[in-house]
Amino acid sequence: MIDPHWQVIDLDPLTWRHLGPYLEPQQYIAAAQPGEHGLFVLHDHGRVLKVVDTHSRTLPEDIPAHISDPETLARELYRRGEWQRVHIIDRHHLAWVAQQAQATHRRDLTFDAYYHLVYTLLWGNREGYACEPPPPAHWHGWTYTDVHHFIAALPSPATLALGVYSDDILWLGLILVCERGLIRRVTTFEGLHSTITNPGPTEHTLTTLCEALAAQFAPPAAVLLCTNAVFSGWLAASDKLAYLDAARVEATAIWRVVPVT
């Protein structure tokens, strides 16, 4: 998805500040959540090396010296209700993940594909990293494969745009220019040559934005304009299309999607 020489330019600082939390890579790979009360048991092919409770120096006394079934142990410990998540980690598994991921140059892999490989190696063996509850395997309902297929299926070239408004003031205005399944350019509404007047999730703004995208970059394939509240709700919603449909009725979201062939 990510072109090794992508252009990331004309970034308005306010958009980028609001986008920042989504750039933290751990959220796409780690099971542990920030601030979560976790129990971590590190072992060496079953021999326990270290136990860490993130919120207490008092450690459970009944962790076996040798772990034969990490998944069962993780489930049993989690069932006690003392921790929000239990991690049973074989250090050899972490070493194996690192070794496999770095075995070759990986010049053939795009950046996202490389990290997806790391994810697959890490979570492909539940004996190596047993975790209860397990990592969600998706991000707000989207999987890597979903996103990859979406980008790959876009017409080439094409633009994607997201405009999020707070009281009709632009809060986040993001533009991606894609070609043959690769994101070649990332910019913000600041990168547009033309100014969008009367901004907000309206038909007027949508039309003006689509014309500007087509004139400057490439025909728009998908553009979503919405309020800040709708954007947050959309990320959290399980049925994302139904959520947006309801928002459109309330005039808090509007979008245009070119049917993918």
């Binding site: 751990q26 542990a32 860490v52 690192a98 770095q102 790391v118």
Partner: peptide, 21 residues
């Protein structure tokens, strides 16, 4: 210290886990 493997920084492991007693 230990766990100096690639990508361990992505896992949000507690720092104490990498200290060898």
């Amino acid at each position: 210290s230990t766990l100096h493997y690639a990508h361990v920084d992505l896992l949000r492991l507690p720092a104490d886990l990498g200290i060898v007693d």
